[in-house]
Structures are given as C-alpha cells and as structure tokens.
Write a protein that binds this DNA or RNA. Structure first.
Lengths: 339, 339
DNA sequence: ATAAATAATAACAACGTTGTTATTATTATA
DNA sequence: TATAATAATAACAACGTTGTTATTATTTAT
C-alpha cells in the first residue's frame, strides 16, 4: 500500500493533521517543521490519495474527457492542447474512450469536477449526470449543456463567399458528405448554402467531391479524379488539413500552379504549418482559441456560473499564397489584383 | 451533490448499511427489501462514489493507460481493443496523455489497480510507483516491470527469411528508421539482421527506404520513388499497414502486378481487412492476441502473481496472395510453384 | 407457550484526507 | 513573575462506502 500522511506523521513525530497542513503549505505550521515534513514526504515518495482527498473536499481537480471516436484520430491535437491548458490551471485530464453513457457514468463515479464530451455523433443532451457537462460539437436549440461550436458551417461559408467575391465561380468542395460525422456534414452544409446564395442557378451537387476517408491520401485521390475531368475548377475548398496535403500533391503532380491555375482554401484549426510548399489560405477557428474557450467554459461551469448553452466560436479567414483573386472579378469590383 | 446510499436509506426507511448490502446483492438482505432498494436507487439515478468505494476497499477496478503520443495515432486500435477486453473483465479504463512521470503520479493518486504504459520512447523503468506497472514496448534485460513485446524485430526477420527461402534476393524495406520511435527502430533492426544473415555480401543500407511519415501517402510516395529507380526489387517488406496501402496504390499506378512482378509482405496487427484488392501477406502479432495478453498480464499483476519481466509475443506469418515464391528458387529447393 | 436457533436489519469502525475546534507551548505585557 | 495574548500543534468530525459486530425480529423445536 501507498505511503499516507500517517506514515509521514510517525516518521516526523508530529500529528497527522499537522502533516496535512504542512503539505498544503498552511501558515498554521511553523516553517522548520513544515520543511522537515515536506522533506520526509519526498523521501517516502508520498502521493496524496485522490480518493480520500476528493471524498472530503468534494473536488477532484480533474476533468473527464469523453472521446469515443479515438480511432478517427480527429480531435487528437485539440485534446493535447486542451490538456496543456488545463494543466496550467492545475487540473488533470482523464480520457475515456468508452461509449458515451458508460463514460459519463464512470466520470460520475469518479466525481470529476466536469465532463467534456466530444460529440460528433449522437446527441448527448439526453444523458443524466450530476457532474456538469460541457459539449464540443454542434450547438442547437435543443442543447441543454453548454456547447462550444467551432462553427464549421460558417467557416466554409466564409471561405466560399470570399472566393466568390474574388471572382471565382467554379468552386468545388472536397470533403466527406456521406459519413456519420456531423462535424463533416456541417461543413458540407456551409458549402451548399454559400454556393446556393452566390450562384442560385448552379447545381451545387456537382461541385461536391466525396472522399473515401479523411487522410492525406484520400485528398490526393479525390483531387486526381477532379483533374482528370474536362474542366478544371478555379478554386478548391478542402474539408481538412490532411486532405489539403493530399490535394497539393495532386496539384503538383498535374503540373498545375498555385494560385495561378487554381486557388485553395483549407479548413484548418492547426497553427501555421511551415512544411507546406505554399503558404496556405485557411479558414477555421485556431486550435488555441478552441482549447482556451473550452477551458474557460469548463472553469465557469465548475464555478457554477451559468454560461450560454450555445457558444459559437468565430472562424478566421487567413488569406495567404494558396489563393488569389481572379483578374476579371478584381477589376469588376474595382480592386487591384496583387499577384 | 450526488445521490448517496444515505439518501436511498432514508427514502426506503432502512439503515444505510442495508442499502450498501442490497446494492451489492448480498444474501444478507431479504429479497423484497433488496428489490425495493434497488428500484429506489435506480429512480434516484444513484452512482456509487468511486472515491469512497476505493478508499475503503483499496481497489478501484480501474486500469490507467499512459499514452503520451496520442498524436501519433499509432496505438489507437490496440487501446480500443484492450478497453473492450477490460470491460469484459469489469475493469474500467482511463487514459492519460500526459508526460510519463506526471501520468504515473496521477494514477498513483487515483489508486488505479494497475498502470499500462505505452512505452515507445523513453525508458519507464526508472519511475517509482506504488501502483503496479505493466509496459507495452520493447523488453530487455533492464526491464523492471513486466513488459509485453510484440517482437517486431522477429516479425520482420521472419518475413525476410521467408522471402529469402522463397528465392527473393532483391528485398527492400519501406519504413521509418530515423525517427525517435523505438518500435520502428526494432523493425529496421530485424530487417538488417535477417538480410545480413541471408546475404552477407550485400549492402543492406541501400535496401532501406526511409519514409517521411507513417501514413498511407508516405508509403505511396516512397514506393513511387523506388519504382523510378533502375532495378525493381522482387519483394517489399512494409513497416506498417498504412504504408502498405500507399505502396499498393503506387504498384497499381505503375501497372505492376502483384505478386507476379513484385511480392509484398506487410507488418500488421490488424485483423484481416477485406477492402484490399489483393489478399495481403502479413506478419505480426494479431491485435487480439496483444490485447488479450496485456489484459492477462495486468490481471496477474493486480493479483500479485509475479510474471516474467519480458513477455515476447509470437508474430504470425500469414502468407496470402500478395507474395509468391520465385520460380527458380522454388525449383532449387525442390518445391512446386503454385501460381 | 417458551427457549433456542436463525434470519434480517441496524450500528459501528475503518479507509486517508481536510477543516474546525481544543489543547499545549511560547511570547509579550504589566 | 504572573497573566494575557498568541503561536504551534494535536485531537476530532466528516466525506461515502464496505465489512464486522451487535441488536432485534422471526422461525423452529420442544
């Protein structure tokens, strides 16, 4: 069994309550005594028993993350970033990859201080939990728990509208529109809405390119098929960073030039990746903004401050070398064209 | 705050100790009483407080997994499989993606029953822990904790030796030999050892093809470069399933035929994937075997049974349509060649 | 019908910790 | 030097649960 404060107390010749105070750096115990106790605790390799501590304090200083879709490596980067942020706030992160309801029950038993549910499929708002829940996914009127929404729909819309205003008409979207993943569906919806808004006469469906998966190769394969077809699009909106990497390879291979022959805007949360050949135009909420907001909402929820149940993050459009304005349009809108 | 057995006791008009027994289905409480209590507990949405329970029982029925490399999606499938296996054994899994020492301390505080460390980098055998640790990685004489080793070195050796005995000489290995990941390094070592054993005169280094990453596209890119070169290898050993998928695409694209022009054996743990165009020859310890063994070792460790500190799993060579014997060799060894 | 046996339930201690209250040791004040 | 004030430490209760022991209710045997 582990070392307890009683062991330390015995070894230091003081009462165990003094040990408790010393270790929590209470001013109620004299400096030299404190030091002696801390030293002994270190020597014995003492680790406070979380069960006992959370039993009495009713706080565990732990956040439980429910992440049932571990295999779709999707949120890995976000979880890493959030984990760091929470560590700064002296919270510990535990992850469960179990099915949503089971995971929520587990975290209830463990009395974590709050649960973060990565919700890209089912609706979590039916589950009961005495531990407060925060959801990361898609906000809507039925949300009962605070839901942070990276507003993927608006992100893609923004990209499309920008491309439209830059004179592009032959815009395609490469992404997943058939899968179960509601986050992907949102992006598709954004594309459709924006395109229908810009070019009501067009048939949007022909501009949607379905991928076989969300990895780099899938982007590559999809783009290649596109390039086989008769007419090249002037702009591509890509559903994810990985897909974009593949698309870029296909562009390269086809001998096309970016952004002269084709413009690309990628949905992306990641901080600027410098291993790109071309500085990439991106749209999306930056990873740090998401994890900061998630941490904020979690803390607020723990502090019983009630927050909105729908928290939309603002996607950022970052225009860089991989996209350009089409000459005619730029002219027609009275804007100069900058190569 | 959550519902406790005292709330249930009050509501049922019995003492809380009776509630405790009823919920644990003790024969010490009369059937109708038991039923009534269980019903009430259900209605109130009672979840036993894990802190209190593990405090008194000194068991948490929880396994902590340390997985600092979440972003290298590597072990995702294994963790999923193991999670299921442990659920069958009525253990709950919690994951920490923190740095090894921090994660181990966290799990010590939580008094999990055992820790599983995915150890593909640093050496965990220095860390102190009162909770028993099991490691999944590379076993060696310095291992102080039981270490389950999928024997990647031997797996690749087996593949190479098989190919050698099938008459192949121009064998290449596509994989990662430069990264930090010791698991990958093991595979490379296996390839080198087997090749040097078979063809001492050859320069092995020219047969090692370094990939840029471990994703499908990286396999594709590496294979393509190989196929540009003068002389085609007769056989490829691939370091991972994803790489293999890419390699196959490159083979296709080049118009080569498998296994007539080229044989492929892939390192792989996954159960047969049927989305392959060619039934794949693979080598490796099956995923289920790994997770079963990990679960076994964890249980044994919890039960204080002492196990070996080095547990090597036996890789399986599964020869299928993607590889063939070379005619001359088959003849020279007196074996018939089956197309 | 009553004592003895047994079934059912209640009461209590313990797990390791924290916060509060009580006790003892030390210092300051007269 | 005695006394009040304060500093330092010790003792205690509580958190929610389980396992053991004590009590009460019920059955069995005579």
């Amino acid at each position: 069994m582990g070392v307890t404060i009683k062991d330390i107390a015995k070894s230091a010749g003081v009462s165990y309550s003094t040990v408790s105070k010393a270790l929590r750096d209470s001013p109620l115990v004299k400096e030299p005594t404190k030091k002696r106790i801390i030293d002994i605790a270190g020597q014995l390799g003492y680790q406070p028993n979380a069960a006992a501590r959370s039993l009495v304090s009713k706080k565990s200083h732990t956040i439980g993350i429910v992440w049932p879709t571990i295999e779709r490596a999707a949120h890995a980067a976000l979880i890493t970033s959030l984990n760091q942020r929470l560590e700064q706030l002296s919270y510990t992160t535990l992850i469960s990859i179990n099915e949503m309801e089971f995971a929520i029950n587990t975290f209830n038993r463990y009395q974590v201080d709050a649960i973060l549910a990565f919700d890209d499929g089912e609706n979590i708002h039916n589950y009961q939990s005495t531990v407060p829940i925060v959801s990361y996914g898609i906000a809507n009127s039925a949300s009962v728990y605070p839901t942070v929404d990276a507003n993927r729909r608006k992100a893609i819309q923004t990209a499309v509208e920008y491309l439209g205003s830059a004179g592009h008409q032959k815009i395609i979207y490469i992404g997943d529109m058939l899968g179960e993943d509601r986050l992907q569906q949102e992006k598709t919806t954004g594309f459709k809405q924006a395109m229908t808004g810009l070019y009501p006469a067009d048939d949007v469906s022909s501009r949607l390119i379905q991928v076989a998966g969300l990895e780099q190769y899938d982007g590559y394969a999809a783009a290649r098929e596109v390039f086989e077809a008769q007419e090249l699009p002037t702009a591509i909106v890509s559903g994810s960073h990985d897909l974009t990497r593949g698309i870029l390879r296909a562009v390269h291979e086809k001998g096309l030039s970016i952004p002269n022959d084709i413009s690309i805007i990628s949905y992306d949360n990641l901080p600027e990746s410098d291993d790109m050949e071309v500085p990439l135009s991106t749209v999306g909420v930056p990873l740090a903004a998401i994890s900061d907001k998630l941490a904020d909402v979690l803390m607020a929820t723990i502090q019983q401050e009630n927050t909105d149940t729908a928290i939309y993050l603002e996607p950022e459009l970052k225009i860089s070398g991989s996209s350009r304005k089409l000459d005619d349009s730029a002219v027609s809108r009275g804007e100069a064209y900058h190569g």
